[in-house]
Amino acid sequence: MQYVEIVEPEKMHLMGLMLAHLFEKNLSKPGAADRLKSKDSRIGIGAGGMKITLHMSDGRVIVSKGFEGRIAARVEGTMDGFMAFGVHRSMVGPYLQGKLKIAGNPFALLPMLWLTKL
C-alpha cells in the first residue's frame, strides 16, 4: 500500500484490513492525500467489536489495532452501520438508528466522510 500502513498486517483483524483497503483506495484518488498533508490527528473507530486507531499524518494513514494514543474523536457502531455510512456519506442516518455512536470532537471526524466513501 502506498498511503496506508497497517501495523503488523498478519495480526490485524478483519475490520482493520477492510478499512485500510478502503482508505488506500480513497487516498489514491488525485489530490486526496494532499488533504491530509497538514493533519496530525488520531481517530478511534470501533465496529462489530473490533477497534482501530487511525493516525493521519503527513498525507499518510497508519492503522493500528485497538485505541492507541491521544484520540481526538471516536466513532463506534455496527459493521452494517459503517457500510451504510460509507454508501450514503452521512453519519446522520446510522447515528439516528443507533448504529453509530460518536464521542470526542466531532470535527475531527470530518476526514472520515471521504476516507470511508464507498
Binding site: 503488523e8 462489530g48 467489536g49
Partner: peptide, 10 residues
Amino acid sequence: RPAGKDPTEP
C-alpha cells in the same frame, strides 16, 4: 498467511 485470530474479530 494470517497469523492468528484476533479475539475481537468474527
